[in-house]
């Protein structure tokens, strides 16, 4: 009997690709910048999962290192893009920014 586990994982990667395509749809059609950022971040998480499952399919678990690297780079890229769009530059020292003063029109959450 053939080992069914690679086929099960192949189905899992197909479903993960479906989820990634849905994320791409939100990335292209997202009305605001933050929708797109959220879609990119979620796409990265799914890419990490895809890489992990794919490494098990081809039976070469070394690739999980790449998934680990991608998870960390995804997080740092999200934070960097957010900082750039908030302050207009990546060289701003966050210790000099008074975060309480910059809150929008002091309404508070509804």
């Amino acid at each position: 009997m053939r080992d069914p586990m690679p086929y099960i994982m192949l189905g899992a990667t197909l479903l993960l690709v479906v989820a990634m395509v849905l994320m791409l749809a939100r990335l292209i059609g997202g009305p605001s910048l933050y929708d797109r950022l959220l879609a990119v971040n979620s796409f990265g998480t799914k890419t990490v999962l895809f890489l992990c499952v794919f490494c098990f399919i081809i039976d070469r678990p070394d690739g999980i290192d790449i998934a680990l690297l991608y998870a960390l780079m995804n997080f740092i890229a999200t934070i960097a893009v957010l900082k750039f769009f908030n302050y207009g530059a990546l060289t701003v020292d966050l210790r000099d920014v008074d975060t309480a003063r910059e809150a929008p029109d002091a309404e508070g959450p509804p």
């Binding site: 933050y34 959220l38 680990l68």
Partner: peptide, 21 residues
């Protein structure tokens, strides 16, 4: 790392969106 960074990134995006109005 996913367990730590995913909620942190989500919170950062939410905070930035709230501050941007």
């Amino acid at each position: 790392f996913l367990f730590v960074t995913s909620p942190t990134a989500t919170h950062a995006v939410a905070h930035a969106a709230w501050r941007a109005g």
